[in-house]
Amino acid sequence: MKPIKVSLISGSPKPLSSSSGTLLDELKPMLSSRFHVNIHSLNKPSVPEESMESILDSDILIFSFPLYVDGIPSHLLSCLYEMEIYLKRHARPDLTVYAIVNCGFFEGHQALPAIELVKNWCYKVGVSWGQGLGVGGGGMIQSLSGVPDGQGPKKNFSIALNELANHINTCSEGENIFVSPNFPRIGYKIGAEMGWRYQIKNNGLNKKDIGRRLV
C-alpha cells in the first residue's frame, strides 16, 4: 500500500521557536501512523528548490502560520504564488490542504479572512480544501506547550485540534473551527501588556516609550 505523504509547513518568518511550529508539534502525534510526515519551514519569500517538489509531491499539506495584518504573511504569500506556478505545470488534483492560523488577538475567529485566502488558493491551483483552524491567544501558545492536552486554558484548543486531526486522518473536508483560550480575556490582555513593558525595558527604553509618536 502506497504511503500517504503529509507535509507540515510552518509559515512563520521565524525558522525556530515559533508558535506556528509549536502548533504543528502538538498536531503531529495526533496524525495517523499510516502517514509519512515531512516537516518544512517557509520563512523566506521563496520556496527552496529542494522543498518545492517534496512539498507538492505530498497527498496532504498542513500550513501553520501567524495572522499578519488580517491575512497571510507576505513571504508565505509569495511562496503560495510560486507553488501556483509550479502546480500549473504539475497538476495535483488529489492533494488536500488544511490551514492552522494563530492570531495574537484573543479571538480565533479573527483568522477567518486568512483561512479563506488559503481556501481560495486551493480553488485557484486545482487542489482540494480540507479545513481551517483559527487559534486565538497566539501570544500564549508556546507557554502552554507543557500543559496537558484538554486541560485548563488548552481545553477548547485540544478539542479543536482533535477535530482537525480526525479530518486530516480521513482526508475529509470540515467546517472551519475557531477557538479562544479557556482563560479570561482581561488576563490575556494584562499578561501581553506586561510582556511588552518587560521587553521595552530590556531594550534600554522607558515604559512610556512604548507609545512614542513620531508625528
Binding site: V69, L77, L117, V118, N120
Partner: peptide, 18 residues
Amino acid sequence: CYYGGYSPFVKNVLDRSI
C-alpha cells in the same frame, strides 16, 4: 488580487506598517 487579498508586495508593505 491574489486569492481574495493583496499582492505579495502590497501585503509586504502592510505587514511592515504595524
